[in-house]
Simulated scan of single mutants.
Amino acid sequence: MGDIEIVMAMLQGMFIFFLIAGLTCLLSKRLGRRMGRARCSRYMESQDRFVIGQDKYLEIVRIGERILLLGVSQSGIHLLAMLEDNDMIELEKRQPGHNSFVTLLEKMAEKKEELP
């Protein structure tokens, strides 16, 4: 009888452990979804992010029809450029040997020369 009681106590403990682990998993998934929704915006959308270093990255943000290239660091957020849809070239669609960074800089230099 002593062995059966030990086995039953172990099974009971395992059942309680798995029940608590399962509930914790479900709860964390639900909270994660809610936290994700809290970050959504009706008017802005993050298009892409490129990490440069620790706490430093470039962020492309679409606000309505405007596309902004932002530099983000510990010192603050800086507007680097306003982009257009034709400036947004997806990496998969690039042609081999096509250097889009240089092309983007050339376009920005042309736009800067056009400004009064």
Rank of each mutant, 00 (worst) to 15 (best):
M1W: 04
G2E: 06
G2Y: 02
G2A: 08
G2K: 06
D3W: 10
D3F: 10
I4N: 08
I4R: 09
I4F: 12
E5G: 08
E5R: 12
I6W: 05
M10P: 01
L11D: 05
L11A: 10
Q12P: 02
M14A: 14
I16S: 09
I16Y: 03
F17C: 07
L19F: 15
A21N: 11
C25L: 15
L26Y: 11
L26T: 06
L27S: 15
K29N: 07
K29V: 11
K29T: 06
L31T: 07
G32N: 14
G32H: 09
R33I: 11
M35S: 11
R37C: 08
R37Y: 13
R39S: 06
R39Q: 10
R39G: 04
R42Y: 06
M44E: 15
M44D: 11
Q47Y: 11
D48L: 08
R49F: 04
R49M: 12
R49G: 03
V51E: 07
V51P: 00
I52G: 01
Q54I: 06
D55R: 07
D55T: 06
D55V: 03
K56E: 12
K56V: 11
K56T: 10
K56N: 10
E59N: 01
E59M: 01
E59Y: 00
V61H: 00
R62C: 02
I63H: 09
G64F: 03
G64V: 03
R66T: 07
I67D: 00
I67M: 00
I67A: 00
L68Q: 00
G71C: 03
V72M: 01
S75G: 09
G76C: 05
G76P: 01
G76H: 03
G76K: 02
H78R: 14
L80S: 07
L80R: 10
A81I: 00
A81H: 00
D85N: 10
D85M: 08
N86R: 14
N86K: 11
N86S: 14
D87K: 01
I89Y: 02
I89M: 05
I89F: 02
E90G: 09
E90C: 07
E90H: 10
L91R: 05
L91T: 05
L91Y: 04
K93Y: 10
K93N: 13
R94G: 01
R94N: 02
R94Y: 01
P96S: 08
G97A: 05
G97W: 02
H98D: 15
N99G: 04
S100W: 05
V102L: 15
T103K: 07
T103H: 11
L104G: 00
L104I: 01
E106M: 04
K107E: 02
K107I: 02
M108Y: 02
A109C: 08
A109Y: 06
E110T: 09
E110Y: 07
E110I: 11
K111T: 04
K111D: 10
K111F: 03
K111V: 04
K112R: 14
K112Q: 13
K112Y: 07
E113M: 13
L115S: 12
L115K: 14
